[in-house]
Amino acid sequence: MSGQNEHKTMTLKLIVWRQNGKNGPGRFETYTAREITEHHSFLEMLDVVNEDLIKEGKEPIIFDHDCREGICGVCSQVINGVPHGGQERTTVCQLHMRKFKDGDTIYIEPWRARAFPILKDLMVDRSALDTIIQAGGYTSAHTGGAPDANAIPIPKPDAEYSMDAAECIGCGACVAACPNGAAMLFTGAKVAQLAVLPQGKVEAKERARAMIKAMQECGFGNCTNHYECQAACPKGIHVKFIARLNREYIRALIG
């Protein structure tokens, strides 16, 4: 009841991108987030703002979210100029308001890339990433009984490498961060996680080719090695996987 820390709340100024539909012109709107504690996650803070908007009879801010625990890769907001807000290895949903101060102004924008059309407000269509996966991000296998887990021995370093690449949650922050709107970090991770394993090696060449082709057809840009993607990636995916993708492609080219 007395001046405990937990009762301290923040008031924040939000400048949020609002856009009615795919083609609708967008604009920034300013909102005030009241009664925010340091324990609120960033999305919970937006929930509070949306509650207020609904009470006032206004349209709530539309944003993508699902698991809210950093694994589904659906939350997607550029906060103060950095996808996911710039806290290392943290998705928007795992970002907490203790990172902000009372009175802060926060810009919230959607992922921006030609391949990610805005659907509404902060929500974009990221199905282009699925298209890339459909082009080759799998291994072909006969159905039947599950094989024994140890039937194919895989060296520890290869398993680790593959798992590092497989950490990618497909959020698209790499694309949003890229000055060229390229999806090379995502595609690189998806190609690399399979290319290093015996099951994936079989189709490695066709996979690299097909996924790069799909990536281009979806309207993503070309990589110019800024490495902005790695810096923004909430899973710390390394650009060495882009080098791997390049290597896989060169290997496919020379036969």
Binding site: F28, V78, N80, G86, Y107, R114, G219, T224, Y227, E228
Partner: peptide, 27 residues
Amino acid sequence: LLTLENWAANPGKYAVNRKLKANFSSE
């Protein structure tokens, strides 16, 4: 060609643009 395609692929600029790794030389 690369540059023209990249400009087309990233039409919308952010109102706030904070770069973490890209630099003057790379841009």
